[in-house]
Amino acid sequence: MNDVPWGDLALNLLAVTIAIIVFIGVIMAVAIRIKNQSIIDIFWGPGFVVAAVVSYLVSAGGDGDDTRRLVVLVLTAVWGLRLGLYIGNRNRGHGEDKRYTALMRKQTGSLVAFLVRKIYGLQGLLMILISLPVQFAMYQDSSLGVIGSIGIAVWAVGLFFEAVGDWQLARFKADPANRGRVMDRGLWAWTRHPNYFGDSCVWVGLFLLALGAPWGVVTVVAPIVMIKLLVSFSGKALLERGMRRSKGEAYEAYVASTSGFFPLPPRRSAGRRAKSTS
């Protein structure tokens, strides 16, 4: 791996780290002022857009293939901005998320130190780590090729599942007739988490776009970490624990009949509907 542009990558990583620290710091300052720490969720996706924009600018004039660089920038921006707008619109008028309210009750000592340790420091580190495929792809001089094209296709599948799943769930919840029901229609009949499955595909796609050179394989850590977060920590596992407590048998029936993550044909009869609030 003697041809790896270590100096350029190190400079890029430094620039992204500084940008993310500033980005996260501004969000934390605003959150403290308005007493709502859950606004960080809105800026999770846009944080990767910051990393992509900085990487695109820092890599300008280098040896990276311009088409690959632009594609990675655009795909990251479309995913990140859509996600931020969706969460911002969903959370509008609802105040601080109860998870953050419960966390803040445990605060001791310096508020800033507590927030950095419990919320913002981890978020920033994850943004830097998971954005590695975006950063590395900016310095690869090969054309997109077959693997890059497959990466774009996987990203497109992911965005479809994530965006359509979010849209279907929002429409379902907005209809008063669905009060007391579990969302088990559309993509939600094929997987209990079309949005999380889509998110995973997006980052697998971006990883494939970082394979324009053999050394890009080291960025596989990014989709692994993202999928682990979505399945075992802040995503699927956390949500399902809450749903089981609040929805009881109706959600258990949904769990028994619907794939937990990877989309599969529904196993229940067409007329069977769980009775509980999604």
Score class of each variant (00 low, 15 high):
71 V>W: 02
63 D>H: 13
86 Y>Q: 12
54 V>Y: 02
98 K>D: 00
83 L>C: 04
55 S>N: 05
61 G>P: 03
130 I>H: 04
124 G>M: 09
249 E>N: 14
120 Y>F: 14
22 V>Q: 10
21 I>T: 14
202 V>Y: 01
211 L>M: 14
263 P>E: 06
114 F>D: 04
20 I>L: 14
54 V>K: 07
24 I>L: 09
90 R>P: 00
148 G>E: 04
153 A>F: 11
110 S>K: 12
83 L>T: 08
181 R>K: 15
73 L>S: 05
241 R>I: 09
90 R>L: 02
105 R>K: 15
195 N>W: 02
123 Q>P: 00
188 W>H: 10
70 L>D: 00
188 W>G: 08
2 N>T: 14
62 G>C: 05
74 V>R: 10
110 S>C: 09
20 I>M: 10
87 I>H: 05
226 M>C: 05
121 G>L: 10
143 S>Y: 04
177 A>H: 07
91 N>C: 04
237 A>E: 04
90 R>W: 00
140 Q>D: 02
130 I>F: 03
18 I>R: 12
242 G>D: 07
211 L>V: 09
107 Q>N: 06
94 H>Y: 05
230 L>F: 10
23 F>E: 06
168 Q>R: 14
119 I>R: 09
35 K>G: 01
214 P>T: 11
210 A>L: 07
33 R>P: 00
164 V>E: 06
218 V>Y: 02
70 L>F: 08
112 V>I: 15
77 A>G: 01
204 V>I: 15
149 S>W: 09
86 Y>V: 13
29 A>Q: 12
11 L>G: 14
102 A>H: 04
208 L>S: 06
119 I>P: 01
132 L>T: 15
40 I>E: 02
48 F>L: 15
135 Q>D: 00
131 S>D: 01
84 G>K: 11
211 L>E: 01
253 A>T: 14
202 V>S: 03
205 G>I: 11
60 A>W: 07
123 Q>Y: 05
246 S>V: 12
162 E>V: 14
266 P>C: 09
54 V>F: 03
228 K>M: 10
169 L>M: 15
21 I>P: 00
86 Y>H: 15
218 V>M: 10
228 K>L: 12
58 V>K: 08
162 E>W: 08
259 S>K: 10
269 S>K: 15
171 R>I: 08
23 F>R: 14
21 I>N: 09
244 R>P: 00
77 A>K: 07
195 N>R: 09
151 G>L: 09
250 A>F: 03
60 A>H: 07
75 L>N: 03
50 V>D: 00
56 Y>V: 14
96 E>G: 08
23 F>G: 09
107 Q>Y: 02
104 M>D: 04
227 I>R: 10
68 R>N: 00
46 P>Y: 03
161 F>N: 07
268 R>H: 10
192 R>G: 04
197 F>Q: 06
31 A>I: 13
229 L>S: 07
123 Q>I: 13
262 F>D: 04
177 A>F: 03
265 P>F: 08
28 M>N: 08
17 T>I: 12
217 V>P: 00
71 V>F: 02
155 W>F: 12
